[in-house]
Computed example of a mutant assay.
Amino acid sequence: MQEQKGKYEGLQNDELGIKIRSNDNPYLSVDIQKKLLQPRRLSSYFIVLIESGSISYNLDLQDFTLTDGQLLFAMPNQLFTPPAKTDNLKYFKLLFDENTLALLPQQFPFLVNPLNAQTIVLDSAAKERVIKVFGILNQLLHLDKYETDTEIILAYLNTLLSELNSAYFKNKEPLNPLNTNLSKFIEFKLVVETYLTEQPSINAIAEKLALSTNSLYRIVKEYSGTSPKDYFINRLITEAQRRLRYSNTSIKDLAYELGFNDPDYFSRLFKKSTGKSASEFLPRQDLSGK
């Protein structure tokens, strides 16, 4: 990581956008615990590893049950509902922001979830290594918080994400220059996230990726099981569901926010995709915590 030194030279550990929790250092305040159990939009990357026990999380309205050696990762802006802690659960939770990620010497494609699988199952050897790295980070960020160089913290974060990136793509096509299809799919996902509310045409996206529309269709179909258009629509509807939970805006204004010129068309599309109207969706959202 020597070549990255200039990026974090002089940066203090407590200025890093990284936090870790475990059985050794859980949230101490009952009020904080109650607040954190409420649904929210993530502002950072989130990773939870279950060392032993079982627990379920809800991510973008989908339930994920984790057991020994299983890991869930989530991205900024995803709709996240954590569960109450269960008995006999051993875990590590890690949050880090985009600024911290930018300090690392490499990219980690698994974080954009190109294979549409936000859980990772670790084999016994990988689980042992990952638990050790989590444990070291836990020590660095808590016990030795003011004595450890930032470079060391980032080095272990880089090691952890490298392990998870490898496990995510295990038994899949290797991500290397020869695997251009997967690389292009990752680029497609990034373009969708960047220009989501501008709603660019599929032709425009293909041109941005230096692909023909037929090639883009084939690649997106291969990795997502849907066409580029359907992928984009599904992502828009997911974003609509996220915003319906946390915004007091009207459905008409929401449609405009998402780049729709016709709110009625948005409403029809929403109902077709979810099976219920946007107005039917709203009354079910209760963020009071009661």
Rank of each mutant, 00 (worst) to 15 (best):
Q2G: 11
K5V: 08
K5T: 12
K5H: 14
G6H: 06
K7H: 08
G10E: 12
G10I: 05
L11M: 13
D14G: 00
E15K: 07
L16N: 01
I18G: 01
I20C: 03
S22A: 04
N25G: 00
L28V: 13
V30Q: 15
K35F: 12
P39M: 04
R40G: 07
R41W: 00
R41I: 11
L42S: 01
Y45C: 02
I47N: 01
V48G: 01
L49V: 11
G53A: 13
S54I: 07
S54R: 15
S54T: 13
S54N: 11
I55L: 02
S56M: 09
N58Y: 07
L59A: 03
D60I: 09
Q62P: 01
T65G: 10
T67E: 15
L72R: 02
F73R: 02
F73W: 11
N77W: 09
T81Y: 05
P82I: 02
P82S: 07
P82L: 04
T86D: 14
N88W: 09
N88K: 12
K90S: 14
Y91N: 06
K93R: 11
L94D: 05
F96L: 02
A102M: 03
L104I: 07
L104W: 05
Q106R: 15
F108P: 04
F110L: 01
F110Y: 14
L111R: 04
V112K: 08
V112A: 08
N113D: 15
N116I: 10
S124C: 09
S124L: 11
A125L: 11
A125Q: 14
A126P: 03
R129D: 11
I131M: 09
I131E: 05
K132N: 13
V133H: 02
N138Y: 02
L140F: 13
H142C: 01
H142M: 01
L143Q: 12
D149G: 10
D149E: 14
I152P: 00
I153H: 03
L154D: 02
A155S: 14
A155D: 10
L157N: 04
T159K: 04
E163M: 10
N165T: 06
A167C: 10
F169C: 01
N171I: 00
E173H: 08
P174F: 00
L178Y: 06
N179R: 03
T180K: 13
N181P: 00
N181E: 12
L190R: 15
V191Y: 12
E193I: 03
Q199W: 04
I202P: 08
L209H: 06
L209T: 05
L211G: 03
T213M: 11
T213V: 14
N214Y: 13
L216Y: 06
L216E: 05
Y217C: 02
I219C: 07
S224W: 06
S224P: 05
T226L: 11
T226I: 13
S227H: 07
S227W: 09
P228A: 03
Y231D: 07
Y231N: 09
Y231G: 03
N234F: 01
T238H: 04
A240V: 08
R243G: 04
R245S: 11
R245I: 06
Y246W: 08
Y246P: 00
N248M: 15
N248Q: 15
S250M: 14
I251W: 08
E257D: 15
G259L: 08
F260A: 06
N261R: 15
D264K: 14
F270H: 05
F270V: 05
K271L: 05
K271A: 13
K272G: 00
K272D: 14
K276G: 00
E280T: 12
F281T: 06
L282M: 15
Q285N: 15
